[in-house]
């Protein structure tokens, strides 16, 4: 029995296309209500296929998927009402106005007739398209189209919003605006968001939790910082003004420090978790009245995480 308290629950999901291509093999993850969850991976990793199955656009080959307790295969209509889907390709009708697009979507998503006009106007206002709502979409810029699409995905106030590569093709400014909008939705509207991305930065900034997907399999999942802390040996560099050998000895014996190297007046430490260990480093040195002049700290990036779990650098994949 599926619990209603879990927004998205995917168990052992597989997808084999008719031409024999295995897009997804045995993917499992779950997303809580109110979370922004990211599927991070290169093109062709199986992200879009997963989202298409969850939004009932594609059939699964094996496993199961539930949205708020509703089975995507057995209750597609319920799932469609619970979810909004914003595709990678545009999906808006270029030969209709922004408002017409939204009105049609609202009607097909079964928004009560009395609420339609107000809802559509509010959404147009929110995405900043009120002034162009009566213009044909073909005159819109890429960023405007994307904002309209997101408004269309939200018109029936879904519990779960699927965004397939939401920031692809957007300039940095539009991307930043989109991120803020999604954070707003999460905070104000308590919407659960599942997004796919191949931008490490996006996953890091936006997502509460991510799953790294590679060749149809999830290779790692957790919060961005959890995943980063799985990378051993952060590099901490301390600049000391006296008693550098004593300091080095103290630090070497500390739990969590893997190695120390003295370079001139600097001590370079390899530690398990830089963020956790930093306060105790400072404390131990202060006990012996050793002053730290400066310190620097290199945290691993999601790119390092990606490398660790997939064995290849991210940039090369894209």
């Amino acid at each position: 029995m599926q619990k209603k308290e879990i927004a998205i629950n995917v168990e052992n999901l597989s997808k084999i296309y008719k031409n024999g291509v295995k897009a997804i093999s045995g993917v499992s993850f779950s997303v809580n209500f109110g979370e922004i969850f990211g599927l991070l991976g290169p093109n062709g990793a199986g992200k879009s296929s997963t989202v298409r199955i969850l939004s009932t656009l594609s059939n699964l080959s094996d496993g199961s998927a539930h949205i708020a307790g509703q089975n995507v295969t057995k209750s597609p209509t319920e799932v469609r009402l619970l979810t909004g889907y914003v595709a990678q390709s545009t999906g808006v009708d270029a030969w209709a106005t922004g408002k017409e697009n939204l009105l049609l979507q609202a009607q097909l998503e079964r928004v009560p007739r009395k609420k339609i006009n107000k809802r559509v106007d509010n959404l147009l206002e929110w995405v900043g398209l009120s002034s162009v709502s009566r213009k044909l979409v073909k005159t819109y810029s890429g960023g405007m189209k994307r904002r309209l699409e997101i408004a269309m995905g939200l018109v029936h106030e879904p519990k779960v919003l699927f965004l397939d590569e939401p920031s692809t093709g957007l300039d940095p400014e539009s991307r930043r605006k989109l991120w803020n909008d999604l954070k707003y939705l999460q905070k104000q509207k308590k919407i659960t968001v599942l997004l796919t991305t191949h931008y490490l930065e996006e996953a890091d900034y936006l997502c509460d939790r991510i799953a790294i997907i590679d060749k149809g399999k999830i290779v790692a999942k957790g919060t961005p910082s959890d995943l980063k802390s799985k990378i051993s040996s952060d590099i901490v560099t301390l600049e000391i003004d006296n008693q550098i050998d004593l300091a080095s000895n103290i630090l070497t014996n500390l739990h969590g420090v893997n190695s120390t190297n003295v370079e001139d007046d600097k001590i370079v430490l390899q530690v398990n978790n830089g963020k956790k260990i930093l306060p105790s480093l400072v404390l131990e040195l202060q006990k012996k009245s050793i002053n730290i002049v400066s310190f620097s700290f290199n945290s691993p990036s999601l790119d390092d995480v990606y490398l660790k779990f997939t064995g290849h650098r991210f940039e090369k994949d894209n």
Partner: peptide, 13 residues
Amino acid sequence: NLGVMDRLLSTPV
């Protein structure tokens, strides 16, 4: 081709 069909099919239409 433009994804309009996908958008329609993601609704209960």
